[in-house]
C-alpha cells in the first residue's frame, strides 16, 4: 500500500508537529511586542520586520538571480509616494494605493531596468545605483509631488481600513509581520518552482541558462518585477507608519545599500538570510543612533561598512553556518 500513498498531501496537524520549531518561532514573534513594551523597542521591531521584508524582496533579483541591484530605494519611494499622493489627490484607500504603487514600480523598473540587464556584475550594480539616485533627484525637484519638502499625510481616525494608528505602534508591527509571512510563503513557493530553478541557473551561468532554453532577459525582468513590486509595498507601509515622506529620508543611498546588505549578511539567495541579517543590522543601527544621539551620526554607516568588509570572509552569509552536514544532522534529530 505504501506505493499508493499520495506524495504531496500534507496533513496540517502532522505538518505542525514536524515543524513545531517554526510554530514556536511564529508564536514568539506574535508575543514579542508584549515582552518588549517600550515604544522605541516597538519601533525597532517594526524596522526589523520592514527590512526583513525588503531584504526578501531584494533577494529575488539580487540573491537568487544574482543581479546586484543597488537602486531599490527608488522603488521603495515610488511605493510610498503613489499610495500617499493617490490618497491626497483622489481619496484612494492606501491599501489599494499599496498595490497601485507596486504596479507603478513594476512599470518604471521595466522601462529603466530592462536596458541594464545587458550589463553584468559591477556594471549592472553601478547602473542601477545611478538610476536610483536620478529618481531621488527627480522627486526632490518635482514641485507637483511636494519637491524637497515632501508630503504630509492627513491624519485620520485610526483603523485598519485607514491604515493609520496613533495610540500604539502595535498594529504596524502585526501588519509588517503578515507581510513578512506572505513574502516568505511566496519565496518558499518560488524556490521550489520552475521560476526559482531558472533564476538560480541564470545566476550560475547565463550562457548555460540560454542553452537550456531559458529566456534570460525575460526571467531577469520577471524577477526584477516581483522584487520591486514588494519593495514598493513596503514603501506604503513606511509612509503610513511615519505619515510624512520626503525624498531625502525615503530614498537615500543608505536605504538602497541597506536593502542589499540585509540579505547579503544573512545569506544572499536563501529564504532565511534576510530574517537573520535584518535584526542584527537594524538593531545595531537604531540603537547606535539612539544611544549616541546627535554625536552618533554616521555610526550606522560605519556599522554597515564594517559588516560589508566582514562579509568578504564569509561570502555565504550567516546562513552558510547552518548548511554544514553537522548542523543538518542536529536539525534532523531535533525535528524528530
Amino acid at each position: 500500500m505504501g506505493r499508493l500513498k499520495p506524495l504531496m498531501v500534507r496533513q496540517p496537524r502532522i505538518f505542525w508537529r514536524k515543524n513545531y520549531i517554526f510554530a514556536l518561532a511564529f508564536a514568539l514573534l506574535l508575543a514579542l511586542p508584549f515582552i518588549f513594551t517600550a515604544h522605541f523597542q516597538h519601533h525597532v521591531m517594526i524596522k526589523v520586520l520592514m527590512f526583513t521584508f525588503l531584504g526578501c524582496a531584494w533577494n529575488i533579483i539580487g540573491g537568487y538571480t544574482g543581479q546586484v541591484a543597488l537602486g531599490h530605494a527608488a522603488f521603495f519611494g515610488i511605493g510610498a509616494y503613489t499610495s500617499s499622493l493617490c490618497y491626497i489627490w483622489f481619496g484612494l484607500n492606501p491599501w489599494f494605493g499599496m498595490f497601485l504603487g507596486g504596479i507603478l514600480a513594476v512599470a518604471v523598473s521595466a522601462v529603466i531596468n530592462y536596458p541594464c540587464f545587458r550589463l553584468h556584475g559591477r556594471y549592472f550594480a553601478i547602473a542601477t545605483l545611478a538610476l536610483g539616485m536620478i529618481i531621488r533627484l527627480l522627486f526632490t525637484n518635482w514641485r507637483l509631488v511636494g519637491g524637497a519638502l515632501g508630503v504630509r499625510l492627513p491624519l485620520l481616525p485610526e483603523s485598519l481600513w485607514n491604515f493609520q494608528f496613533h495610540t500604539t505602534k502595535l498594529p504596524y508591527y502585526y501588519i509588517a509581520l503578515v507581510l513578512c509571512a506572505l513574502i516568505f510563503a511566496i519565496l518558499y513557493k518560488i524556490e521550489r518552482s520552475k521560476l526559482g530553478f531558472y533564476l538560480r541557473a541564470i545566476k550560475e551561468s547565463e550562457e548555460a541558462a540560454r542553452s537550456l532554453g531559458i529566456d534570460v532577459a525575460k526571467y531577469k525582468l520577471v524577477a526584477m518585477s516581483i522584487s520591486v513590486f514588494f519593495t514598493a509595498m513596503a514603501g506604503t507601509l513606511y509612509a503610513q507608519y511615519i505619515l510624512y515622506i520626503d525624498p531625502i529620508s525615503l530614498m537615500p543611498l543608505m536605504t538602497s545599500i541597506l536593502i542589499c546588505v540585509v540579505p547579503v549578511l544573512g545569506g544572499a539567495g536563501t529564504l532565511w538570510g534576510p530574517a537573520l541579517g535584518a535584526p542584527i543590522l537594524l538593531i545595531a543601527i537604531e540603537y547606535s543612533r539612539a544611544w549616541l544621539g546627535g554625536g552618533g551620526r554616521g555610526i550606522d554607516y560605519m556599522i554597515v561598512g564594517a559588516i560589508m568588509v566582514a562579509i568578504i570572509f564569509r561570502p555565504g552569509g550567516l546562513t552558510s553556518f547552518f548548511q554544514g552536514p553537522r548542523f543538518r544532522q542536529w536539525w534532523r534529530r531535533i525535528r524528530g
Binding site: A201, K203, A208, A209, S211, L212
Partner: peptide, 27 residues
C-alpha cells in the same frame, strides 16, 4: 564545461527538464 556549480547534479538536470514542463515533480 558550464556546470551550474552551486546546484546539485539533480538540480542541474532539472533546469533542463523545465524546458518541457512546469511541474517540479515531473521535472
Amino acid at each position: 564545461v558550464n556546470t551550474l556549480m552551486n546546484m546539485t547534479a539533480l538540480e542541474n538536470v532539472m533546469v533542463g527538464a523545465f524546458c518541457r514542463t512546469t511541474n517540479t515533480n515531473r521535472a
